[in-house]
């Protein structure tokens, strides 16, 4: 294989791995945009989505790709409950309180999941396991293509929802100016709950796609992807979906480069080195005038 081929291959895998990050980061962006809250426990929703998918699949044996709807719906519900009973009471008491609260949520979700589903690594076999599709010089598993398609469809759906529906427009209005939105009669508390639920649903979609691609999962799988998704949205710009996609892809490349050149242990550290350097240069985030 020539160098260009290897490079293209790495880009492709970066894209595939980036899908999960992009879904997480978009969800975080949505929640942050509307409510300005920081939920470090966002990765736990990814994990719950993964377990719901696996459980339904083990029980019914239906095509795991179809379960994505169910896991998204379930997480809208769970997200709404968390928003209503955990975050709403402390809304406006400061970012630190939200971060501390999410630490509590991490304890509860990770260990609750370990109590319900056990703590061992599990995996699911996709019905399309073993089928590959030629893409240029590569032969790519069908599952990866499906995952990219699903991510694209979900993101397009979200875009249309935000642009075309009344609720979507209300969400955008709330994120641009909360007080103004209140003044024109938008029920911002309802918008909060919907945004939080949607953000969680995006994480759940990520969890489902994680599972169907045959990746192993356990109750602790969500924490690091969530923190990295935060790093990506800080880098890529709060509220910017293209920024999150490019940021996620660049992060993936940097990580793989560091793992090979400096040693595997650098894979997590390099994200934070980049983040710190970026914040030293621009303390508000790379594209970050917006948002806060």
């Amino acid at each position: 294989m020539d160098t260009l081929g290897i490079f293209l291959q790495i880009i492709f895998w970066g894209l595939y791995a980036g899908c999960i990050y992009i879904l997480l980061a978009t969800g975080l962006n949505l929640i942050f945009g509307v409510m300005k809250i920081v939920n470090f426990a966002h990765g736990e929703f990814l994990m719950i989505g993964a377990y719901i998918t696996a459980t339904v699949f083990f029980l019914t044996g239906i095509n795991p790709y179809l379960i994505i709807l169910l896991s998204m719906l379930a997480l809208i519900g769970i997200g709404a409950v968390i928003e209503r009973f955990c975050f709403r009471p402390i809304l406006g008491t400061g970012k630190l309180n939200e971060i501390f609260l999410s630490i509590g949520l991490i304890y509860i979700f990770q260990n609750g999941a370990a109590m319900i589903w056990g703590d061992s690594w599990q995996s699911v076999k996709s019905p399309y396991d073993g089928i590959t599709v030629p893409v240029g010089s590569l032969s790519v598993p069908l599952d990866y293509i499906l995952i990219m398609l699903f991510t694209a469809v979900i993101l397009c759906g979200l875009y249309l929802f935000l642009k075309k529906t009344t609720i979507g427009m209300q969400m955008r209005a709330t994120s641009q100016n909360r007080k103004g939105a209140m003044l024109v009669g938008i029920n911002v508390e309802r918008i909060d709950i919907i945004s939080f639920g949607l953000g969680c649903a995006l994480a759940a979609a990520g969890g489902t796609l994680w599972v169907v691609s045959g990746q192993v999962f356990n109750p602790y799988m969500g924490s690091i992807p969530a923190v990295k998704a935060f790093a990506i949205i800080i880098l890529g710009g709060l509220g910017s979906i293209p920024g999150a996609i490019i940021g996620g892809l660049l992060m993936g490349l940097a990580e793989n480069g560091a793992a090979v050149l400096l040693g595997g242990i650098w894979k997590d550290a390099i994200s934070f080195v980049i983040l710190i350097v970026a914040l030293v240069v621009r303390p508000t985030g790379l594209f970050g005038e917006k948002g806060e």
Binding site: W13, G264, I265, K267, D268
Partner: peptide, 20 residues
């Protein structure tokens, strides 16, 4: 001789270099 972080799930870059 390539290494990876504990709990890693994506090994393709290391494997590409090993194949090379």
């Amino acid at each position: 001789q390539q290494s990876f972080k504990m709990g890693e799930s994506d090994f393709r870059t290391q494997l590409t270099l090993i194949k090379a």
